[in-house]
Design a protein around this nucleic acid. Structure first.
Lengths: 345, 345
DNA sequence: GGGCTGGCTGGGAGCGCTCCCGAACAGTCG
DNA sequence: CGACTGTTCGGGAGCGCTCCCAGCCAGCCC
């Protein structure tokens, strides 16, 4: 009737106040759970809210509070690695599970190309998220530094490569070194003496760490570390096949391979078979990731399991903590991996 | 110096205007690409923006425009299906690819439990997304109706089950019926006469449609449709194994199975082998999804490929169109599937 | 009884932006 | 030369909310 009614029809805080017969301040206090409200006033406001179906306007709130109740999950990855099963889905689930218990919402940003990365940077630093979860991988990513500089709470998925000024960023990682050590020790315990490895890309921390674990385990088992036993791939299946070929050419009598990803291991398995090697009798193989394919290769793959969903959960919790509390607090969480023994080793 | 500087230090539109020596309106016009600005004014404003590193405040803009430049991807799925490879990752990629070309941002909302679903409903209808992409699956989901009622542009991933008032919602689906038909015709063309099927859950549209395709193809090939040849699973590996057992008990001499998901097919393959059937000699098997596992089963799985990433792209484009234009426009997109022939059939 | 607490409350100010109205200024035509 | 059109521009109003301050009303103590 009066011209005050907004066209969109969504009730505002003022309308609630009018209906409850109180002032705006009181409604705001009720909505935000302030204790400074009498029982009667609170009841009246709650009644009005229910009747009107009032939902606070986030934009208006964000405008004044300078907070957005949103965090971004940035997938800053040019290639497919992050999307490999079960990584991405698992992480997202873990994160969502935790965030769903908080008032925060999740904004998903993929930055594959450089242009997209710039757009994302722009948006993040132009504020309007309260924190950032970053799934990166490759070194040379400038985003962590940029965010740190802007003072935006950030949690990295995966330990940053080297000297990144991510010194101020928290991260959650799986124990890649330990996992690789587990795998290679297992191979050594099986009596294998010539253990090769197909490493991941060495510009990714996971690639480097798994190689380190391999070397440590060799040393611990008193086995020779020979550079001809090491070939790097890119975590993808084809690169695994190629690497296996190279390895077999170089060291025909190798009796075991530790492969830094299940997908590469699947490729390796194929080549091994076509070159007449029996797995595990002639060559034992251990993979990494415990992805879905590991259960279905022939033979099923012994592999290192990493707790992806837990990783997502921890990332989210860490971010929550940083947003709530001291933004300078830095934490590092490293999650245990374990070996899943199947038929390939 | 003056007390005008905000503590957070982010430059505002007014500061840009002051620096450029123009009014707020002009800055706003430049930022929003209005043509009603002289070349000099535009240049001055752009210079000031660059110097100050100005980024518009989304909340403030959203508050006045009543738009948010954000859409939500709601995964309303209690169980794992959506997360099965390569579905989720593919969809998300496709969506992101399209959205990255637009001013829209992506919110990700998982609603597994009923409580979470309520929270999401509340958030969506409490406004503050401009549209919704819904990945559902099971019938009985009330969200599409709710959103339609609220007039929120919505695009469904997957054709809704039955009589949902999703009559007003657009959707993108893959041609499940056609895909299943393709698979079963292939089996028939191979000379198989007793073709069984392990269907998906019949409260999901994909489950129903794939079964329909199976039946149509049988009829077209003049093969008997026997209810004993049909067992439903839940798309998961174990259910596939169980179903295969049941099928073998009922019809020991079946010579082919069409399985409505690769994961179930993997389970079926296992049981087939343990029951002494050779694949494909004794029993030919065709799966559905063309997931990563299909390439690695023993033997590799012939399966129906569905264009997941394209599905994501189309969903995003459809939503964009609905947001931009006539919100009552309804569209249905059904994407073709094709058969990937490997060793299992 | 006067002054003081202290719990509740209402409402002004203002967050940063867009929208829109009217002013200012050309340029054009009769 | 005056009236008129069209383009460009400035700035007031207001989006819905939170913050904060002043005001009010007990209740209490000296």
């Amino acid at each position: 009737m009066t011209s005050h009614r907004r066209s969109s029809g969504r009730p505002t805080l003022d309308e609630v106040a009018a209906r409850a017969g109180v002032g705006r301040g009181t409604v705001s206090r009720v909505v935000n759970g302030s204790p400074q409200v009498s029982a009667e006033a609170r009841a009246a406001v709650e009644k009005a809210i229910a009747e009107l179906g009032y939902v606070p306007n986030r934009a208006a709130r964000a405008l004044v509070t300078q907070r957005t109740d949103a965090v971004a999950l940035v997938v800053s990855e040019p290639d497919d690695r992050v999307f490999g099963e079960p990584f991405f889905a698992g992480i997202v689930r873990g994160i969502s599970a935790v965030l769903n218990e908080s008032p925060l919402h999740l904004w998903l940003a993929m930055a594959s190309s450089t242009a997209e990365r710039r757009r994302v940077e722009h948006h993040l630093t132009g504020q309007h998220v309260d924190g950032v979860l970053l799934l990166s991988g490759h070194g040379g990513d400038t985003l962590p530094d940029l965010l740190a500089e802007r003072g935006l709470p950030t949690v990295l998925g995966g330990r940053p490569l080297a000297s990144n000024a991510a010194g101020s960023a928290s991260f959650v990682d799986v124990d890649n070194v330990g996992g690789a050590r587990l795998a290679v020790s297992h191979l050594a315990a099986l009596g294998r003496r010539t253990i090769a490895t197909i490493a991941g890309p060495l510009d990714m921390r996971a690639g480097v760490d798994r190689l380190t674990g391999y070397r440590e385990a060799l040393r611990a088992a008193n086995l020779p570390g020979d550079d001809r036993l090491v070939v790097a791939g890119d975590f993808g299946e084809e690169s695994g096949a190629r690497a296996m070929g190279t390895l077999l050419d170089r060291v025909p009598d190798l009796d075991a391979v530790f492969v830094a990803s299940d997908l590469m291991a699947a490729g390796a398995l194929r080549v091994l078979r076509s070159r007449g090697r029996r797995v595990p009798q002639d060559v034992a193989v251990v993979g990494f990731d415990d992805s879905t394919v590991a259960r279905h290769t022939d033979p099923p793959l012994t592999t290192v399991h990493q707790p992806v969903e837990e990783m997502g959960r921890r990332m989210a919790r860490l971010l929550l903590a940083r947003i709530a509390g001291d933004p300078d607090a830095r934490s590092e969480v490293v999650l245990d991996t374990h070996l899943v023994v199947r038929a390939s080793a």
